[in-house]
């Protein structure tokens, strides 16, 4: 009797193959230099901000902005979160953090919901003048916000949402609509025609088809839009400044106020810490969802 030895699969790593001699071409050097410069352009200020935020004021006033901290302190962070003043209110940027969250969720739901349904209707239903509508909508994207700001203030005033979270959310939804609608419409255009036909024969209801068939197929694009919107809503300053009421100023506005209204010596370390605190949430979103972001952007047609 002979034993049959289990066959070891031949495993090859990249080391088993002869290395190709690499040539570095002039053009790739140029690209590398360019990219390095781009990276430094972002990295150097970021380094300065981070280092400054953990230095003590006594070191900062010596003026060596690139030096490492002699003594690391997190007090500026604590102060920024709890104590900095915006106007007469001295409760730190945490107030703004909560306000920004309160603004973020309704704005996200309104802007994404509205453009998603519009994109779905334009892409998959037979709508008269759909092309014209899309054209007008997209033209609207090129109108500068400053031009329509005052009319918008009056309009939100008329519907009694000016100075509330809902006012801010509605303005966000309106301004995001052209781009988001276009993104959703183009994504839904790739859904095979026959799936829509089948759904029409099975149900025929606009909302049922949307919620049961189309929405579950939108995962990829939702994440892309979610990241875009979270970043733009969180980082927004001007809408929050003009449309937010006294108690509903977002974090960015509180940050700006606190930097402007420092009394006595200017606490650069606290300012830097406050700025970093404000910038953290979108970064976290990028780290968590970044992988899906790339997938969503590169996702092609949906296979049945």
């Amino acid at each position: 009797m002979t034993d049959i030895l289990p066959l070891e699969p031949v495993r090859r790593t990249f080391r088993d193959y002869p290395k190709k001699p690499r040539k570095i071409r002039g053009s790739s050097i140029a690209i590398l230099v360019f990219l390095t410069m781009c990276a430094l352009f972002i990295a150097i200020p970021l380094y300065v901000i981070i280092v400054t935020s953990i230095k003590e004021m006594s070191q900062i006033i010596q003026g060596e902005i690139f030096s490492l901290p002699t003594k690391v302190t997190f007090e500026p962070w604590w102060k920024a979160w709890n104590e900095v003043c915006s106007g007469v209110q001295c409760e730190g940027v945490k107030v703004g953090f909560i306000n920004s969250l309160m603004i973020l969720f309704p704005s996200l739901v309104l802007s994404i919901g509205l453009s998603m349904v519009t994109g779905y209707a334009l892409a998959l239903w037979n709508i008269r003048w759909a092309g014209t509508f899309l054209f007008v909508l997209f033209t609207a994207a090129f109108v500068p916000f400053q031009i329509i700001m005052i009319p918008l203030i009056i309009m939100t005033g008329i519907i009694k949402v000016y100075g509330t979270i809902w006012g801010v959310a509605i303005v966000h939804a309106v301004l995001a609509m052209p781009l988001l609608t276009l993104i959703f419409r183009n994504y839904y255009k790739d859904i095979p025609n026959e799936i829509m036909s089948a759904a029409l024969m099975d149900s025929g209801s606009f909302w049922r088809i949307f919620f049961e068939i189309i929405l579950p197929m939108s995962g990829n694009i939702l994440i892309v839009v979610l990241i875009l919107q979270i970043t733009s809503i969180w980082n927004d300053f001007i809408i929050g400044l003009y449309f937010g009421g006294i108690g509903t100023k977002p974090m960015t506005v509180i940050l700006a106020n606190s930097v402007i209204t420092s009394r006595g010596e200017i606490s650069y370390n606290v300012d830097m810490a406050a700025a970093l605190l404000t910038a953290i949430p979108p970064l976290v979103i990028y780290f968590v969802l970044g992988k899906f972001f790339v997938q969503g952007i590169t996702a092609g047609a949906i296979k049945g």
Partner: peptide, 27 residues
Amino acid sequence: PKDRGLAMVFQSYALYPTKTVRGNLQF
């Protein structure tokens, strides 16, 4: 279409990709 009392089978099958087979039949 849904009120005509018809059922249709498509060339590309047109199954709802996010639903299970049962979900497809039930929709």
